[in-house]
Design a protein around this nucleic acid. Sequence first.
DNA 1: TCTTCTATTGTCCCATGGGACAATGCGAAC
DNA 2: GTTCGCATTGTCCCATGGGACAATAGAAGA
Lengths: 212, 212
Amino acid sequence: MPGLVYIVDDDASFRTAIERRLKKAGYEVATYPSAQHLLDCPPSENKLGCILLDVRIPGLSGPELQGRLSEIGSTLPIVFLTGYADVQTTVRAIKAGAEDVLTKPVSSEELLGAIERAMAHHEVMRGQRSQLDALRAHIAKLTPREREVFELVIRGKTNKQVANVLGATERTIKAHRHRVMEKLQVQTFAELVSLAERAGILRESSGTGQAN
Amino acid sequence: MPGLVYIVDDDASFRTAIERRLKKAGYEVATYPSAQHLLDCPPSENKLGCILLDVRIPGLSGPELQGRLSEIGSTLPIVFLTGYADVQTTVRAIKAGAEDVLTKPVSSEELLGAIERAMAHHEVMRGQRSQLDALRAHIAKLTPREREVFELVIRGKTNKQVANVLGATERTIKAHRHRVMEKLQVQTFAELVSLAERAGILRESSGTGQAN
DNA sequence: TCTTCTATTGTCCCATGGGACAATGCGAAC
DNA sequence: GTTCGCATTGTCCCATGGGACAATAGAAGA
């Protein structure tokens, strides 16, 4: 699997060495001397890739960069490189979603294995992400009113009940409902509920889950 | 938060020392000299607890025990104790779901903090687990035929379509459908779909997701 | 053998969902 | 000022879902 590896390390000679090894293995490479450099020109989520990150670098540390990236919604897997075995840091990094933690010096076998797993992982993540994005993009096309109707019908409310809640006629709700089905491109009510569930709508502040 | 800590360590004096520390902190303790001992009398999932596990023990190793436990569906969080910092093992343990990895000698602060987080985690897991179990138990009460009808209607098939697929009358499907709603204790169709989605039914071998 | 569970089907009737066809009022953008 | 998106409501009609009431038949157990 090809892909782009973003190397973040303050040691220029080390960057070059790793870069050479990765290029030989068929990967594209982008190098950054610091976390800030990477944040300044944020990597594309669309391109298959992963980040090879030194734990201890001047400025923002590796784990700190990891935190920033996850805040901005990055799904790029991170492989950490660390100079010495630090269990505490390792645990935190992995629990925060890192793909792997490797100790320097790193064998090509270890390195390439980790990169490969990271790429594979990113491939999966991208797929899931784009599905969810597409879903939410559709839902975002609903007008506020349609959205209200949507929220209620997927919880099992009848048109009549929705009409009462929103202070409108049953006929009106019917119209909104129709446009909702249209905009979300579903043929059946079951698909509508299923879609809402997958988009996470039914898990957000749904109270007790009762349908009366 | 109280709870029971299962200590697995081959060093008797170490077990005793830890046991004393934990009891002082208000925890119940059960000790095992080996992984096999713990597997022989498997801990109750119902009681709030966690496992304190040495990585290197004679017989089954810590990570091996972790594997066995997860195979049999245990949700007990595991806190590893290791004599020396091994990044490789740590990464694997955490990715396999361990709650934490601590290095010996361990300070009371570290130990109790980790145990406390593990207990809190188990509390959450137990809640989720019992919810899912209740859901699946209900679904398991469906007869084979009812289950077939269930699978089809939650994918948006009309009674008529289901009747065609299963080679029965629309009226029959109606009867089955009625009993499904009854047994799963839902009032509305939306709840039925939502329940199926949460139980994972709609993600299993559902083909393209089309509803025609 | 008698009971129970499961699967099956029927009729009658009503509430609900949803399509077709059509129209009004309002605020914002052009 | 006109166009456009949005919200609103109407009628007519039909398909579908679902409750009420009832019954048959085979298979598994007690």
